Amino acid sequence: MTMNNICDIQSIAHQALELEMQTIAHLIPTLNDEFTNIVHLIGRNTGKVVVTGVGKSAIIGQKIVATLNSTGTTACFLHAADAIHGDLGIIEENDIVLCLSKSGQTPEIKIILNIIKAFGNKIIGMSAVKNSHLHTNSDFFIWTPIDREADQHNLAPTCSTIAQLAMGDALAISVSQLKGFQEKDFAKYHPGGMLGKSLHMEVAHLIHLHEKPAVQPHESIDQVILEMTAKRLGATAVIDHEDHIAGIITDGDLRRMLLDQPFQTTTTAKDIMTTDPITIAINSRAVAAIEKMQKHSITQLIVTNKNRYAGMIHLHDLLNEGFQIPPP
């Protein structure tokens, strides 16, 4: 492949992304009182949102359903072709139906619109074409205008599906905020993967990975070195008889000690410890721990439980769980 061909490919991709970006920008002026009314309609509704469409609109519809469900609005997908062959029974009395169609003239959508209206359910149409069959037969309408599709023949659903997807996201997010959807609610619906870990995993789930390195302030430097070596965390907490934190000693503290003075066996933990160390509560989220480590440029954190020493976690514990160091 020649460099010219590479440049042509990059130019085509650039143009496609520019067209899709412009499509989303053109959606913003369409947000009006009707959109606000739709958000309030869904937000106060006691039933679910049934999303329907065919072709690429059906695929986008399934993603909108997923976003609604994950942000606190119960939703399901109904393929318009299946709807006319018995699946209309999924629509219950208080459900709202969201119909997606680029042209607004999709034959399957035309067939089911009158049936759904006879059920008495509210219909929200979403189409790129005003005054289409879908527009005129919907109770509410979301306009997703496009200038053209992104491919050279103006045929492949690209800009039109991007518009549906973006407007579906805007709708779901608006409804979730109207309903007061909180982070704890989001966590309930996302227990798996890294997202689930970031929302659910606590420091308490990690401290069992290590023994608790600890010395008391009066203990000798020899004991400090033995404790740090045995527990292999590169640090040890310095605690009193009631497990209150007096300080921390790290590998760096030992190196600085040796640079400042000859090694002396009479040195005690309190002579080289760092007082007021950075700590984290045992019930804190694990993601908060890695953020705190990054902020303070440290690799260990003392864990406390009701202001008493509970253990220690290391940066590697979090990295091994798949967490990433956040940018500074």
Rank of each mutant, 00 (worst) to 15 (best):
E183S: 12
V203M: 08
V224A: 01
H200A: 12
G168R: 07
G322S: 06
P277R: 07
T23E: 09
E211L: 00
M194C: 05
I112P: 06
L319G: 05
R256K: 11
M273F: 06
G53A: 12
Q261S: 09
L258Y: 05
T158W: 03
A83E: 11
Q223R: 14
L17Q: 09
G168L: 14
D251H: 09
Q177D: 07
I111G: 00
I116F: 10
A235V: 05
L226R: 12
E211Y: 00
D317K: 02
H314E: 14
Q10L: 14
A237R: 01
I38M: 08
H314D: 13
L209N: 15
A128P: 04
D87W: 11
P145T: 12
E227F: 03
M312S: 06
A237L: 01
K179R: 15
Y189C: 13
A246N: 13
L41N: 01
P213K: 09
Q10Y: 11
Q22F: 10
A281E: 13
L171W: 06
L206T: 06
P328H: 10
P327Y: 06
A286E: 01
H40Q: 10
T46Q: 11
T23I: 14
D147P: 01
L27S: 08
M273W: 00
I313Q: 15
I60S: 06
N4F: 05
T36E: 01
T274E: 03
G180C: 08
T136I: 13
A83R: 05
G72K: 07
K117L: 10
A281V: 09
F323Q: 08
S70D: 06
S103R: 11
N4M: 07
H40M: 02
I91E: 11
T236N: 04
H200F: 12
S101H: 02
E34Q: 09
S57V: 00
T23L: 12
K306Q: 14
G55L: 12
M1A: 13
M201I: 04
D253Q: 12
I313F: 13
S138F: 03
M228I: 14
N131W: 04
A83S: 15
I173V: 12
I59M: 12
Q294Y: 03
G193N: 07
T71W: 02
V39W: 05
I24Q: 11
V215H: 00
I272E: 01
E291A: 14
A163L: 10
I162S: 15
A25E: 08
M126F: 12
S297M: 02
A288N: 12
I123G: 05
R44T: 13
G43N: 03
T74I: 08
A75Q: 01
E211C: 00
T36N: 05
A235C: 15
T268N: 03
K56C: 11
T299L: 02
A156F: 07
S11I: 10
F323T: 10
I325V: 15
D276K: 15
Q300I: 00
L98Y: 02
H14K: 15
K130M: 12
H218Y: 13
T229E: 03
E321I: 01
S70C: 11
D82R: 08
I91V: 15
P145L: 14
G72L: 09
R148K: 15
S176I: 05
I24E: 10
I162A: 15
